[in-house]
């Protein structure tokens, strides 16, 4: 029995969310035969491959698919690649993190395989028994996969923290092999083309992995006021998040949205400013360890999940915090 983890990489490193998928794979795969598949082209792929080969004790093999057409992750090419690898090696499980990357092609592959995927898994009770949230996390559904191999799933990375992760195990790097892409020609996927990606480069930690997250709601009133929140984030070494209302109003870009259909976060500290606490928002942050809510409205639902609530105007609180918080070392 073997498991394939579909990994994302960035800047020559395997993404932490993909390493969470490796952690999750450890729950289904007791023999620890976990293969990681990386695709792309150029030097950053090669760096990510050597990182994958030595970064996690559960990984036993690294598969590399190098081709120009794989440089940008199109669902069509990835689905084809997964099919190719599965036909050759016959994995029992194929796993990925439920990022926008994992979501788009795991289900597409399942369409081709004719098996049901299990998305957004938060707990693996037995090898084929999974828990996943439904109704924005207001209920948990336990499902058993009874279909044939492969059992495909995406996991919620915040539920599988990287525990045994160690950076300095270079000594015993695992075998690396290339995927034979000779049957992989442009004609197969001439139907879609990648044009571009626009992103807001930020010095701050990534929202999905940050230890501290500060979030603003509609009450921040403008994009300019979000700068105030950014200052606080800087002081705390935090990532900035936002509610759907704040994104819809154009205060911040879409990738900052926390909630049922946005990013799911579970930092050590989550501070919500001017956030009312709609269930769709709570779905994205309810697993945070400590939740702080600052809101003028004492009846705001966010106070029902907050460990510490402060009924006050955020425009008074944030400047005061900026002044009184200790400098970050």
């Amino acid at each position: 029995m073997s498991t394939l983890v579909l990994a994302e990489h960035e800047g020559g490193l395997v993404k932490p969310s993909s390493l969470s998928a490796v952690e999750a794979a450890g729950f289904v795969n007791k023999e620890k035969s976990i293969t990681v598949l990386l695709a792309g082209s150029g030097p950053s792929l090669q760096e990510a491959v050597s990182h994958a080969a030595s970064c996690h004790p559960l990984i036993s093999q690294v598969l590399v698919a190098e081709a120009d057409i794989l440089k940008h992750p199109l669902a069509e090419t990835w689905a084809k690649l997964i099919q190719l690898v599965q036909q050759k090696d016959g994995y029992s499980y194929i796993m990925a993190s439920s990022s926008s990357f994992g979501k788009k092609y795991t289900s597409k592959s399942c369409g081709s395989f004719g098996c049901s995927p299990v998305t957004d898994v938060v707990e693996i009770s037995e090898p084929r028994l999974f828990v996943r949230p439904i109704y924005a996390g207001n209920a948990l559904s336990t499902v058993r996969y009874t279909g044939p191999d492969p059992c495909m799933m995406t996991i919620r990375s915040t539920s599988f923290p990287i525990s045994s992760f160690s950076k300095d195990t270079n000594s015993d790097a695992v075998p690396i092999s290339q995927v034979d892409l000779s049957t992989f020609n442009e004609e197969t996927f001439g139907k879609s083309r990648w044009l571009n990606l626009t992103s807001q480069d930020s010095e701050r930690p990534d929202l999905g992995n940050a230890r501290v997250v500060v979030t603003g709601g509609r009450a921040l009133k403008s994009a300019d006021n979000f700068k105030l929140l950014e200052k606080l984030a800087e002081k705390l070494g935090a990532a900035v998040g936002a509610t759907r209302a704040a994104v819809d109003a154009g205060f911040v870009p879409n990738e900052l949205q926390v909630g049922q259909t946005g990013k799911i976060v579970a930092p050590d500290l989550y501070m919500a400013f001017g956030v009312s606490g709609a269930i769709q928002h709570l779905a994205g942050m309810r697993d945070s360890k400590v939740i702080v809510a600052v809101n003028k409205d004492p009846d705001a639902p966010i106070f029902q999940v907050a460990d510490y609530g402060l009924v006050a105007d955020l425009f008074d609180v944030i400047p005061e915090m900026l002044e009184k918080l200790p400098e970050k070392k």
């Binding site: 199109l74 990022s99 083309r193 044009l195 990606l197 626009t198 992103s199 870009p253 990738e255």
Partner: peptide, 13 residues
């Protein structure tokens, strides 16, 4: 498309 890292643009036949 809205993706984790921002906005991605695709062209589909």
């Amino acid at each position: 498309r809205e993706v984790d890292g921002g906005l991605e643009t695709l062209s589909l036949d």
